[in-house]
Structure formats: C-alpha cells, structure tokens
Design a protein around this nucleic acid. Structure first.
Lengths: 131, 131
DNA sequence: GTCAGTGCAAACGGTTTGCATGTTT
DNA sequence: AAACATGCAAACCGTTTGCACTGAC
C-alpha cells in the first residue's frame, strides 16, 4: 500500500507498523517513538509524526484526541469507540455499536455522519466514582 | 458567587461573563479575549484563562475540546452536546437527550458516567457531504 | 492596607516545518 | 541518479506560570 502511493518502505516505517500491530492499546507519539527507538535508536519524533500522517492518509492508522493530552494513534482495523475518564485518564474501549442509536439520530435530524474513527466520550470511570 | 468563594469582582470578569452571556455559541479564548478587549483594551489572554478557570471551578462555565483546535468555552446553564464537522469545523449543538441511550449503556456495562459537559462527537456535516 | 487580580514576557508541551544529509528505488 | 525519507533544530500555537504592579475590598 505504501509503495502504491509513491511512498518508500523504510526501516522506521516497518518499526512504526510493527509497534502499532503488537500494541495492546492506543499509543501516543511519545511512547510510539520510544518503542521504535529500541530498533532504530535515533529515530526522531518528527519522523514518526510524518509516518503516521502518511499511514493515516492510506487509511491504515487513525488518531483520536481524548481530552487535553497528546493524541493517540492505532490501527484502523477495528472500529470502536472510547470512554475517557477525566479523573484518571484511563481509556475504555467500547464497541462501535454503542454509537448506532445516536448515529442514526444525528443522521436523520441533522444529516450529520459520525466519524467512525473518532468516537470518543468523556466521563468518570467506575473506580474513580467509588472515591 | 465569585465573592462567596474569596474572589473579587473586577471589570474584566464582568466583561468575560457579559461576552459569554450574549454569545450565540461557544467561544475560544482568542475570540473571547477579542470581545473583552473592546471594553478593556489591554486585557491579556492569560487573564482570560485565569478567569475562565475560576468560573469553571464555580460551575458557571464549561469547556470542551472539539478536535485538534483550541478549546471552546460557554455557560454551563444548558446541558447539550456537540457535533463537530472535521471538514469545515462547524459545530452543531444537539440536545443532551441524544446521549441518553449511550449514557445508559456505558453506565450499565462499564459503570462509566458520561460527563454532561463534554458531550462531543466528530463527523461530517450535511453540507460537506454534498461535495 | 491587604490580598487578589492583572499585564507582560517567558516557559511549556505537543506538533509542524526547513534544511542538509542519508536511503530506497 | 532521482526522489523520497530522515534527523536535527527551530518555529509554531494554545496554554501556563513568575513576577512586579494595580485595584477591589
């Protein structure tokens, strides 16, 4: 896919993709860069940003803004939503189906199509509520 | 309310509140500062940030992060949600009731309570889809 | 008179960009 | 060899903070 769009396959791109593939959850550019540096020690964050931008353009990767912190990136394979706790910053992944009702309503009432890849809501997680 | 929490009522605070009260929609700190400067010409953005922080602590004001841009602020009076268009950045306000179904589901399944004041979703508005 | 509020400028953190060098094709 | 990719450093933008001064009480 990279080659078919005029891009070149490089060691850093492989490392970024490998990290994303084996990542348990969403990664910030900072952590992503850290992982990549274990393979290619002097990879810079700016390169990771550029690679992620390319991969996002190819539809392979997706990013979300979960609150006031840095953006997180992940593979676009599985569509799903996020619940982001405003107190402990924990992120819970939920099925995209949770959004189907509201997606239908905003589509019907406003002609607005929800972005499948940016389904994020804030609130308080169960643990933080117990305190 | 400001005085009862040890704060002082100043000209800039009045101007910020007046702007928020008469604002048709949500305002960024930049636009808010611009409006305030028509009354108090050398008001600085840092002061506006500090005032908004105070008002948010009092529960009078609320802010949201709608995408990759600057945060927007508004009075907390009416609880409602946002639809933010990723192409033209238009923001559509929708009733909070749209979120009731998903709020119930995440509460039941994860014990997660949605934040009434940060109900924002991204997608594509009707106009941008027509192009 | 005291203490909170303010303006300014500098610091900050995440992200983007310019440029010279290195690598893929 | 040509074009893309990379590292570095600097620029950028929204936001926060330190400090001296002003203004509310």
């Amino acid at each position: 896919m990279i080659r078919s769009h005029g891009g070149r396959v490089t060691a850093v791109k492989r490392a970024v993709l490998n990290t994303l593939i084996s990542a348990p959850q969403h990664l910030s550019v900072e952590t992503l860069t850290g992982s990549v540096q274990q393979v290619a020690p002097d990879t810079s964050a700016s390169t990771v940003y550029r690679i992620l931008e390319e991969l996002e353009g190819l539809g392979i990767v997706v990013h979300s803004h979960l609150g006031h912190t840095a953006a997180v990136y992940h593979l676009s394979g599985l569509v799903h939503g996020h619940l982001s706790c405003v107190r402990c910053a924990e992120t819970i992944e939920i099925p995209a189906s949770f959004f189907s009702t509201i997606a239908d309503r905003v589509s019907g009432d406003y002609g607005f199509t929800l972005d499948e890849h940016h389904l994020a809501l804030s609130g308080t997680c169960a643990r933080c509520q117990g305190r």
